[in-house]
Amino acid sequence: MQLPPEEADYFFSLFKPLLVYTNQKFQINPDIRKPEDIEKCPFETTVKIRYTLYENPELFDNFIHENSDNLSREDISIIQSWKDFLLEEFFVFRYLKKYTIFLTSDEPTKAYGVLSLYSPFEEIVGSDLPKLVETVLLPFKDKIVSDGIFKSSNIFFGSGIRGRLKESYELAKTRFGIITSLTNSVSEIETADIAKLKTYLKSQNNLVKHWNEIQILKDKSLELKQLYYQEIGKIYANKYSKQWREIGLNNVWFALFEDMPIASGKTQADVERTVKQILTNPQKKFVYYFHLKGK
């Protein structure tokens, strides 16, 4: 997904003059005097000017101050927002309809939904993901864009790293959501432990793979223990549902304690009464109830 052409034009109508201003202040290339010159100069020169801008963020305010008569309120707001830029290494992880997912390479992993400018990221980065790149993310009209300059590597990532990145992505989504604005503060949706436990309990495969970590996490607090029993109940409810439907069960309520079916009945109330009779009080809060409906 990329910006509409008119928005990409607007972006560069602000960004190129800012590069020209930076070039003039630091006297990097005397041949660059106007925005059109940026398009003609060597790529290495553009990169040098661009790094100089981000290394001297006071240039954003200075540019606004010296050009305020030629800037609209929206222009000023956008340029000021660019002080929240992110210059980092990212994993270009996945192409989605709305945006491309960029994962931070440091901890805690965050997932950004990023739009390209004129060319789709697939043309710039390639279709073989993940790809490690260095670029700058900028806020633009309540969206996140790349500034269009990439430094990429040709490192091939094997199945092990790909698997870890997939887990990091799921954890980032659970913990922070997909971040689509740089002007709003990023807060945790859930604590790191809750996010990890949910990710580890997302499937039977994850359950087996992370069994030892799960046992440590679930004993950290009552909240985590309750989450463990509910999430593991969902896993086994999905597993058993297919088997029970195959033998003709339909419209039945069940109670699971971890992976064990411990009660069933025609209504949830029936099942809850049975559970009260067979389990002690501390155990009752960990029971997972579910309704087996027809196909």
Rank of each mutant, 00 (worst) to 15 (best):
226 Q>Y: 08
20 V>P: 05
77 S>L: 09
104 T>W: 00
36 E>F: 13
135 T>A: 04
169 Y>K: 02
8 A>D: 03
87 L>A: 12
141 K>E: 15
164 R>M: 14
85 F>T: 02
133 V>T: 01
222 L>R: 01
61 D>E: 15
241 S>R: 01
280 T>V: 04
129 L>Q: 10
69 D>I: 14
168 S>D: 13
277 Q>D: 04
41 C>A: 15
138 L>M: 10
112 Y>V: 04
231 E>V: 12
9 D>K: 12
7 E>F: 15
130 P>I: 12
86 L>H: 01
199 T>Y: 09
190 E>D: 08
115 L>F: 05
186 V>T: 00
64 I>P: 05
280 T>I: 00
256 L>S: 02
101 I>R: 08
270 D>V: 12
108 P>G: 04
195 A>N: 02
41 C>V: 14
6 E>F: 13
14 L>I: 05
103 L>I: 08
163 G>M: 05
277 Q>P: 01
285 K>A: 10
67 N>E: 07
280 T>G: 02
82 W>I: 00
238 N>H: 03
25 K>D: 02
109 T>D: 11
17 P>H: 01
49 I>V: 09
213 E>F: 04
122 E>I: 14
185 S>T: 13
31 D>Q: 06
13 S>Y: 00
249 L>T: 11
89 E>C: 10
274 T>H: 10
92 V>A: 09
251 N>M: 07
87 L>E: 13
142 D>P: 01
13 S>L: 01
185 S>A: 09
17 P>R: 05
210 H>S: 14
4 P>W: 11
98 K>L: 14
35 P>Q: 10
130 P>W: 09
28 I>D: 08
191 T>D: 11
138 L>I: 02
245 R>Y: 02
